[in-house]
């Protein structure tokens, strides 16, 4: 390497735009709603956004390694319905049911991953199938109306918080969110994380380098399933039990990831940007809500965002390629 490489904080490709959009939205919120005049308003926003951010982080692992996970929305619903049915409002059941929920999420992810890698079914189809299977199973089991109830100690993760001296009440969901985000960042900076991105870029190269491509892909799906379970625990506590609690969340998570500049098809993007994408989406919906835009418009807005974000990425890459080709030093420097 001829150029001296000094360390400086570096934003991954495609991170800057989403952070800029997020900043604008956060400022706009302060002008639009009195609730955002103090930090508590933003903390509430973060709390609301936590499940989606977790789902976006899980979706990021799958997308960056070259796949899709469409099953997470139905998985969230299934998890919440299962939780209510098994806990039946009894605090004594909370701990083992939470363990079971996490295990179930992991299991669904493993099945998604194994079918994708071993039976060579495209992940889009596998997880679409899983979505339908989970939907059907939930309906069959509940007959359309979930029974049972969540226990107060279960709902604490979605509703309660930890009292801190200076900051005030810090919601558990925010604590969990930050912990997951830090873990995800550390994971993506490590060898396994970097190799996961390389799989999304060129899995043949990784395989020929001695990498275990299938195992890495299964890992991505398993993480997505696990994080979906975690999101379900927060959502159940926050929003309560219904057969619609997870509806459409898979597409919302994919939109968030794409908004974060993560390349569909894999190989590029940062997990922080994906998380920022989820937060941006949630802020946007909050803003629209404050401005009195009908909630029914949310899905239309989401549709516009996903198309615009991908178009921006595609056009942007072409433009960057051109400008970089012009700047890349070709002849050897002294």
């Amino acid at each position: 390497m001829n150029a001296p490489t000094t360390w400086r904080p570096r934003l991954a490709d495609g991170t800057a735009p989403v952070l800029a959009v997020l900043a604008v939205l956060l400022v706009a919120l302060a002008f639009a709603g009195p609730a955002y005049a103090e930090p508590a308003g933003y903390l509430a926003l973060l709390k609301r956004a936590a499940p989606l951010v977790l789902l976006a982080i899980g979706q990021y692992f799958v997308i960056v390694s070259g796949g899709f996970d469409l099953s997470v929305g139905s998985l969230v619903t299934a998890e919440v319905v299962i939780a209510a049915r098994l806990i039946e409002g009894d605090d004594a059941n909370t701990v083992w049911v939470i363990a079971l929920l996490l295990g179930f999420g992991l299991l669904v992810g493993l099945v998604n991953g194994l079918v994708t890698t071993k039976l060579l079914v495209p992940s889009f189809i596998v997880t679409l199938g899983m979505l339908l299977i989970l939907d059907g199973a939930v309906f069959l089991w509940t007959g359309g109306a979930p029974r049972g109830a969540l226990s107060p100690s279960f709902r604490v993760f979605g509703r309660g918080g930890v009292d801190l001296p200076v900051l005030g009440l810090l919601p558990w969901s925010v604590v969990i969110l930050l912990a997951v985000l830090v873990a995800a960042v550390l994971f993506m900076r490590g060898g396994t994380g970097r190799t996961l991105v390389a799989v999304g870029d060129n899995e043949d190269a990784v395989r020929l380098a001695g990498g275990r491509v299938d195992r890495l892909k299964v890992l991505a799906f398993a993480l997505s399933g696990l994080l979906a379970a975690l999101a379900a625990i927060l959502l159940g506590g926050f929003a309560g039990v219904s057969a619609q609690v997870g509806q459409g969340l898979e597409f919302r998570a994919i939109t968030a990831v794409v908004l974060g500049g993560v390349l569909l098809g894999g190989g590029r993007g940062s997990v922080v940007a994906a998380a920022a994408g989820a937060l941006t989406l949630e802020s946007l919906f909050s803003l629209l809500n404050l401005l009195g835009v009908a909630g029914a418009l949310e899905s239309a807005v989401q549709g516009v965002i996903i198309i615009a974000a991908v178009a921006y990425a595609s056009l942007g890459v072409t433009a960057r390629l051109k400008s970089r080709a012009a700047r890349t030093p070709e002849p050897a420097r002294p």
Partner: peptide
Amino acid sequence: KGEGLALRQSIRDNALLVRRAALT
């Protein structure tokens, strides 16, 4: 390009690919 490199990854990530992928 097809088998040797992950083209969208950095020089660093490619140079460390074998080390990370095979010798965990």
